[in-house]
Each structure stands twice: as C-alpha cells, then as structure tokens.
Design a protein around this nucleic acid. Sequence first.
DNA 1: CTGAAAGCGCTTACAG
DNA 2: CTGAAAGCGCTTACAG
Lengths: 335, 335
Amino acid sequence: MNPTIKDVAREAGVSTATVSRVVNKDPRISPATRSRVEGVIDRLNYKVNTVARSLKNKKTLSVGLLAPEIANVFFMRVAQGVEDRLAEDGYAMIVLNSRESRDGERHAVDLLLEKQVDGAIVIPSGGHGDHFSRLQSAGLPVVLVDRLVDGFRSDAVLVDNEDATYRAITRLVESGRRDFGFVGGQHDITTARERYQGFVRALEACSCPLQERNVRFGDFHTASGYRLFGELMEQPDPPATVMVANYFMQIGALQYAASHRDRLPPDLFLASFDNPEFAAVAGIPGLSIAQPIDEIGRRAAEILLERIRNEALGPYRIERLPTHIVFNGGPQWLT
Amino acid sequence: MNPTIKDVAREAGVSTATVSRVVNKDPRISPATRSRVEGVIDRLNYKVNTVARSLKNKKTLSVGLLAPEIANVFFMRVAQGVEDRLAEDGYAMIVLNSRESRDGERHAVDLLLEKQVDGAIVIPSGGHGDHFSRLQSAGLPVVLVDRLVDGFRSDAVLVDNEDATYRAITRLVESGRRDFGFVGGQHDITTARERYQGFVRALEACSCPLQERNVRFGDFHTASGYRLFGELMEQPDPPATVMVANYFMQIGALQYAASHRDRLPPDLFLASFDNPEFAAVAGIPGLSIAQPIDEIGRRAAEILLERIRNEALGPYRIERLPTHIVFNGGPQWLT
DNA sequence: CTGAAAGCGCTTACAG
DNA sequence: CTGAAAGCGCTTACAG
C-alpha cells in the first residue's frame, strides 16, 4: 500500500541501506546518489514507517502524559505546554487518564510499558507513587508535575506553593486584612499541605489570629469548594478574607457567593490559585496566585527529553517555577 | 532488558509461536501448556512489545486527535470522551495541536501518517479540509468533530446548531423578549453560520425586528466577544437579549458585563453555548445551549473504531447529537 | 561512498 | 495442539 524503503531502493537503483542513509541524512552519501534517491522519495511520496524504525532503534519518539482527568483546566494547559515542546523535537504525546485512582495509574503504567514510550510525564492522582517505579525499572525516565508523591523519586516540576501562599497572604496583611479563613485540600497531597503551611506561616509572622472554625479541608473539587466556603460564610461571624487554595474549589466558592450575596461580608476578598477569569466575571475582589502552567508543561517536557537523551545524568531535580500575583478587576485576563 | 517472547519460550520449553498464541488467547492451545506459559509470563513480568506487534499486524491500536488548540474547554471535553471510549478497547490517543492553522494541520497529517495511527479524529481549524484527504488516501478513516469543512467528506459528529439556536431563541420570544442582538463567528465556519441561521429563522418566525447594528461577527475568541458585545452595549439603545454564539465569546461578553455594569440594560439576558458555570458565577440571567461534548467525543471514537474494523462500510454519516437548554441560577452546574 | 546481511520482537500460514 | 520458518520495514556493523 504505502511505498516502503524497498520500493524506493528499486526505483533508484540502490540498496535499501543507501535509502535509509539518505532518509537519515548520513553525510557519507554522495550528493549525486542523495539527490537521485530524494527524487524518488518525492515522486513515490515515501514516508518512513516509524513503527519499523522504532522496533530497530528501541525509541518510539513518543511520550506518555498521565493525568487524573482530562477535562480539567490545569491539565489542559500542562498538556499544551508539553505538546508544544515535544512537537519541536518530533515527539508524539500519548494522553492517558488515570481517572483519579491508583488502579487507573497502574493500568496506565502497563499501557505505557506496552506502547514502548520513551518516557512519561505524570500528574499524580494521590499522595502515593510506588507504582510509578515500574516505569523507571524498565528504563523510562519520569517527570512529575504539580506535586510530589511518597514512595517514588524522580525529576519534578512544580511551583513553590508554600512561599507563594506566604507572600500572597502577607501582602493582604500589609493592606490591613487580619481576619482570615482557609479552604484547602487534604494533607496527603503535597500541594495542599504546602499551601496551607504557607498560609499558617504568614499568619504567624504577623501574629494574626487564626480560628480553627475558619479552616476547612476538602477534596479540591468544585462541590467541595462550594460546601466548605458556604460553611465558612454561614457562621455568625464569617472571615472577610478567604484563601481558597485550588482552582476548582474557588469556582465552587464563587458559585456559592453568586447565589448567597446577602450572606457575604461586605468587604469579602478571595485569594486563590489560577483563576483570574472566573474571579473577574464574578465581580468579587480577589487575587490569584498564577502558576506558569504552560511553562510547567514545557519544562517537564524539556527535562524529560534531556533524560531520554541521557544529557542529564545527575541526581533528580525538583524544579520550582515562580508564580505571580494577579489582582482582579484589571484587564489583564483579557488575553 | 525487558523480557521478550523468546525468553518466555525458552523458560517454558515451548516455541515462540506457542507463547504468541497464549498471549493472543488462541483457543487451540492446550490448558496445560497455556497455564505453564502464563506462569512464566507472570514470573518474568513479560509484556508484549506492541511496536513489534504493530509492524507485523499493520495496526498500531492508536488514534490521532487533532485540534486547533489544546488549552480549550471544548477540546478537552471532547478529548476526555474520546479517551474514554478508546481506553475501553485498548487504543491509545495521540494528541496533536494544529495551532489554528492550515499548515499546522498539514504537518499533523504528515505526523499521523508516519506514526501509522489507525485513524484520526479531527476538530478542523478553518472552513477548508482538502488536506485531510491524504489520510483517507492512505486508508485511514477520519471522523470530523464540531463542524464540517469544504473540500473533504467523511463521517462527522456534531450538534444541530441551527435548530438548537432556533429553539432557544423561540423560547425567549415566547417569554416576551423581542429585542435581540447577536454576537457570532465568521461564516466560513459551518458552526458559526448554522447558529446565525437558526437565530435569523427564529426572529423571522415571530416577525421580530432585527436591526443590523445589533449583529456582529468576530473570531470565536474571548477578546472578540468582549469587544463586539461592548460595541453592542455602547450603542444608544442596546438590545436586552443577546445571543453570544460561542463559549469563548461569551466569557468575553461576561467580562465586559462585569466591568461595565452601569452600561447594561437592566433586563439584560444572555444566551450562549456551553457555559453554565461562567454565567452562573457572573450573576447575569441567561441560558446556555449545552452540547453533550463528552458524548460527541465518545461517539466520534465509536464511529472511528467501527470504520477501523470495517464494521461500518456504508456511506459517510453526519451525526447530530441533541443539545439541551440550561437556564442560569439553578444549582444544576454544581456537579 | 555503497551493499549484503543480520536482526529488532512479534504473528501466522503451513506442516505435522 | 505445536513448531519451524518467513516476513513486517527498518538500521547499522562490517566489509569492500
């Protein structure tokens, strides 16, 4: 059906070895031979069969991207960054969904092994990562994104959640706010833990009071944000400055706010991660700690490619990219 | 490194053919042999090398998903649906970004051909699709999603944009609204054209006046929605019921609305596609024509798999899935 | 600078 | 029910 290297060789009157060398830009081929072969390649519209090539080379030029869900704003921006970087080097991105379960992750690991990908970028679904080491045992480099996990060591790209939260809260303290609430995720997730620690540290630094009833932990989903933020607001004396430490919980909180405007403190201010568009539309003052999500994806891909090519032989690196703070109301979300 | 079929054969004292048959569940293998071989497979943790298998079978069990951008809510939900369906049958999904350009699409077609995918699902970037026929010439089935294109025929999965818009507008007319505006996309995109036609047809049906100054066409991006909706609102007598015929334009319109509340007609009502969360948070009354996006992805994958297996040999089918209307303000977005 | 030949890890028609 | 062998489409060490 599709022409093979044999067809080209026959038409050009050379061996398949020569055709292969032309295709792979081997400099030892004479210009005359090269251009003759290239002519035939064009004429027949020959495309190298990368499956055959992969079998020989033990490289598929493909990389797995494993995430807890696909329909997720954070994930898709990571994926965009990853695809961007991979495309530059001709690598394909295979996207897998772990469906937020460890079994899903195990299954995905099997699939990646079978598909012979050259490496994997993983956004973990939970706090544990033993099962990812099977990739490393098979010689595949892994780069973690967004968070670290227990029981598994590898390169990782994320942000400095603790420090970013610390700085954001400190800034709010400096502008006179002292009455804080917090809605976050479970502590087995490093990201959730780090953000809460930054929050606590900032309050300690200013000797601001932190009342236990103003702190809630949920599961990083919209419904959880709605419920926990609602619980905060339904108290007799709700905090006026609330950190909702995750994009989806923030959407939930904003939905609660939109439908219970009368319950909200008049000077309510919401701090969160990654959600400038939503906050802007809601018309509630706030700030977002913006992660460079595309860049995280790009860097993860970059590091993975280095490992695949054995350019990076040192110890595993945890790379934390800088965040920046975006205040609502400006036009900066209009891009 | 990884054990091969040869290692298993040697350990089990059988030929590689027998191992292959066990792996592929050939019923002719005796139970005794089967269980012995399976034991060895487990012990060595043997995984079939799908690259080698693909070379032999001329099937890679992988499918390409090509979209104009990855960081896009519509795309990611399609991708989720596609991945879901493909995973059931053990197919991998390779995601490619055409970067909203025809050259990007051509390049992706080359890559898909090289990677020997078994088929492709395409969300086109423009109104033209000549270049996709190279996939079909190579024997690869293609399923279009979201819209049709000139110069290319294939199966397609989308919604009945015209009728959905007609019904939504008609419903608003029945509730007493007569003063309409429209913000949509360029007419070379079938989706944009169909939605506008449905809008016009609904207004004709009720003999509602449609003023040309209340109709604007942009490019389906947030900034365009912001600008064009702003233009509508900055007129002396802005329309109170505006259809913003695309998810991203609607976000732009809501951002404009959030920052220019004083300019809005007091009884402003926004109709759009696919954005219940945003509209809910913004607190502006409205309705969304909700597409079953995951389902579109699933169906596209389903049809593609049928074509790959030659189960569907008939003529190309354009499948239009039903939409439903969601009004803001209820808790239905809390899922 | 070029070719003959082995081999990557599978599958399967053929033979028994 | 099982095996020997060919072959999928490449790449590359070796030889010239």
